[in-house]
Amino acid sequence: MKCRRCKAPAVIDVRRHNAGFCRDCFLHHCREQVRKTIDDFDMLQSGDRVLVAVSGGKDSLALWDILRDLGHDVDGLYLGLGIDEYSDVSGVYARKYADKTGGKLVEIDLPTDVGFDIPNGSRVARRVPCSACGLSKRHLFNQGAVDGGYDVVATGHNLDDEAAVLFGNVLRWSTEYLGRQLPVLPAGNGFVRKVKPLVRLGERETAAYCVLSGIDYQVEECPMAAGNRHLGYKDALNAIEDQSPGSKHAFYFGFLEKASPLFTPEAAAEQEQLQQCARCGTPTTSEVCAFCRLVERASQQ
C-alpha cells in the first residue's frame, strides 16, 4: 500500500478515508484533522490559554502534542485517581511527556488533595467506578482551569468515544444528555469552555499518532473500566465499522448536523435552573453539587 499524499510505502491504513499514509503524511493528516475541527467548531480563539486534561493515555498525550504543534498556548492537568499501579504508571507517562517537551503539567491527587480514591470512594458512595471517576474529572478539571486562569479545558475524547456515548444515549433516548453532547460547550455559569478537538480522529489513529511520534503512553486499560457498557458499545460499533468503514463518522457527524438541534432546548432549560452549590459554589441543579455529595460519602471510607 502506498501513501495517498506522497506515494511512499504506507505504514497505516485508515479505511474510512480509503487511504494509506507514510509516517510523516499520517502525522500531517492528524494535525490537519484537528486544525479543521478547531476551525469548524470555533473551538479556540487567538490568545486562549488551554488546559489539556491529561491521563497518560494515547488520546490526551496526542492532543497535547498536536495542540502544541499547532501553536496553541497549552498546559496539562493530570488527575491522580488512586487506582493502584494503574494510576502510578499513568502519572509516569504524563510526567515523562511533560519533561521531554518542557510542557507545564499541573497535578491534582485525588487521595491526597481531596481525600478519597476511586476504587474505595466509589464503593463507599455506592457509585459505579466510571461514574465516580467521570464526575471527579469534570469537577476537578473545571476547578483546575478556573484556579489557573485558563480559558478552555480540552479533553481527548475521540470519534470512537463520542460515537459510543451517542449510541448509548440513543439506545435509552436520554434526551437531556443528547442535548449536551457537543464538541464545544461554551463558558458560562462558572464553567470554562470545554472542547473536544479529537472528534475527527478514531482511537486507532490517536494510538498510531503516539507510536509514530515516539510518545510513550499507558497502553493498559483501566482495571475499573473492564467490561463496562461503554466498551460493549465500542465493540458493537467496531463490528459495524469493519463491514462498513465510515459508519462511526457518519453516525456522529450526522447527529451533530441533523439531530442535535432538536435536543438543545431541553439542555438549555436545565442550564437555566442552575444555582451555586452551597458548599463549593459550583453550578448545580440541587442545593449541594454531585461532586460535594460524592466527597462527603466517599471520605467516610
Partner: peptide, 10 residues
C-alpha cells in the same frame, strides 16, 4: 498486536 480501545467515559 496492540489494542487501541479504551473504556473511560469522562
Amino acid at each position: 498486536i496492540r489494542p487501541v480501545v479504551s473504556g473511560g467515559v469522562a
